[in-house]
């Protein structure tokens, strides 16, 4: 591994390191689908927050294919490419009668976080 020098900093900062992967992976869902977040409780890394688990939402956008963080965290490299969707959850679905009026949460969910509802 090369030594990180001050000369390398501007290029690294400007380029970043996208987790988007150039892989041909078929989406499991499409915009408009109603989905339920899986009730998974891994002791390892995940990007599926507890407050979403088991809740039902609607896919509003397909962001494309990204590395799956739950797997990448274990393998140490971008792995397990899959589609990521913007999913809308109504406030009442998440918080019941305590929800704010006319509110919702948009969250980004991987194929492996959701099932058809």
């Amino acid at each position: 591994m090369p030594t990180l020098t001050p000369e390398m900093v501007p290029g690294l900062v400007a380029a970043g390191a996208s987790c988007r992967m150039d892989a041909e992976v078929a989406p499991k869902f499409k915009v408009g689908d109603t989905v339920r977040a899986r009730d998974i409780n891994p002791l390892s890394h995940t990007r599926l927050p507890r407050y979403i688990r088991g809740r039902t939402g609607r896919i509003v956008h397909d962001h494309g294919v990204f590395a799956f963080p739950d797997t990448s965290a274990e393998s140490g490299t971008h792995s397990d490419p899959q589609h990521v969707y913007s999913v809308r959850f109504e406030g009442s679905e998440l918080w019941g009668s305590h929800a704010n009026a006319n509110s919702c949460v948009y969250i980004d969910l991987f194929d492996d976080y959701i099932d058809p509802a």
Partner: peptide, 15 residues
């Protein structure tokens, strides 16, 4: 106003 929809964006993934 409650007429205005509030959308909260949780940047939990890579976006």
């Amino acid at each position: 106003s409650e007429d205005v929809e509030v959308r909260v964006w949780d940047s939990n993934a890579e976006l």
